[in-house]
């Protein structure tokens, strides 16, 4: 205590400050470490089988017996035979470097050296992640546009009509309680039966997820002008349309952007889910194919691309938000 209160003028260095790691890289490093550790018990069955095939002594020697044992127990009984954990061909949980290699192989390497790659065929390889990401992105954007447009229209209706307020909102909420994975195949089948396939069904699923946050946010935003602002419009004897265009819509822009950030991420999820039953390209199709053929690294690589896409999209909306609000004099 005497040290801390001493008027030395210099702030005392905290104990261990020398070892301080910046928060974000620190967290990432921590996660990677956990991941590497988790690989051992997750893959222990396959690791021991591989070790047995290579002629090592494994305990217990019976595969059937091993199957019924806990992962940690196997790890504890075979500490010397776990070297293969991080380099299995078909791991249950691929290790981070395997995912990175898969990412490299299915993007840069595929486009540069693949038979169907960008360099040789002049177009993105349909085996590469870039192609699949673009397919997903297309559906995401179309779904996002449909969902946002629908959301804004519904919100305008809800704000202006008591009947719509009472009737639409409950259905909008109910619509979001149905698991999209259950609904997606039905949407695709129904649309297929009326001759619609390809991009649109995926976009519809994507819109189904993304309209909801827009409705909720826009209803709040359109209602955000206070009583005084509404009174002022009344003293001008302003028609409803003028109130909408000149007051409600501009006032709702900050709410819209908050909703759009959620909506774009939801659109991406919708597009991926929509690709699962169709299997005509896209990150969703890629993930499912990976799971069919036990290519977990492929699933994880697609997963990372999807996450990176989502982060980029949300960031882009955030950038547009900052620009717009600054221009409108509403920057927080």
């Amino acid at each position: 205590m005497t040290d801390a209160t001493a008027p030395t003028g210099k702030p005392r260095r905290k104990a261990g400050a020398r070892w301080r790691v910046p928060p974000l890289p620190g967290m990432i490093l921590g996660l990677i470490a956990v991941w590497y550790l988790a690989v051992i018990p997750m893959n222990v069955q396959e690791t021991l089988t591989a070790a047995e095939r290579a002629g090592a002594e494994v305990s217990p020697p019976s595969a059937v017996e091993r199957r019924d044992m806990g992962a940690w127990a196997l790890v504890a009984r075979n500490p010397g035979e776990l070297g293969q954990s991080w380099s299995l061909d078909r791991p249950r949980l691929p290790s981070p470097h395997q995912v990175l290699v898969e990412l490299y192989d299915s993007t840069i390497d595929e486009e540069l050296n693949g038979r169907r790659g960008l360099l040789r065929s002049g177009s993105l390889s349909n085996r590469g992640l870039a192609h699949h990401a673009l397919v997903t992105l297309n559906a995401t954007f179309l779904g996002f546009l449909i969902g946002t447009g629908l959301g804004i229209l519904l919100a305008i209706g809800i704000v202006h009509s008591r009947v719509m307020d009472m009737s639409v909102m409950p259905w909008a909420i109910v619509s979001q309680t149905i698991p999209i994975v259950a609904l997606a195949p039905m949407i695709i089948v129904v649309l297929y039966s009326v001759g619609i396939q390809g991009l649109l069904p995926k976009a519809v699923i994507s819109a189904y997820l993304s309209f909801f946050p827009v409705v909720v946010g826009m209803v709040k935003g359109l209602r955000s002008p206070d009583a005084m602002q509404m009174d002022l419009m009344r003293t001008y004897n302003a028609p409803t349309a003028a109130i909408l265009w000149k007051l409600r819509l501009p006032a709702s822009v900050p709410y819209l952007f908050a909703s759009l950030k959620i909506a774009i991420a939801a659109s991406l999820v919708g597009a991926i889910v929509g690709e699962l039953p169709v299997q005509k390209g896209g990150l969703g199709a890629r993930m499912l194919a990976g799971s069919y053929y036990g290519q977990t690294a492929q699933i994880w690589a697609a997963l990372f691309v999807a996450a990176a896409l989502a982060a980029t999209l949300v960031w882009a909306i955030g950038a547009a938000e900052r620009r717009t609000l600054r221009k409108m004099g509403m920057a927080a």
Partner: peptide
């Protein structure tokens, strides 16, 4: 009618704020 708060629209400059009733 003039309220206690100015209630100008932050997204309009002063000229356009004053023009609001005229536009309507």
């Amino acid at each position: 009618y003039v309220f206690q708060a100015a209630g100008l629209y932050p997204w309009r400059d002063i000229g356009r704020n004053v023009a609001l009733p005229l536009e309507i």
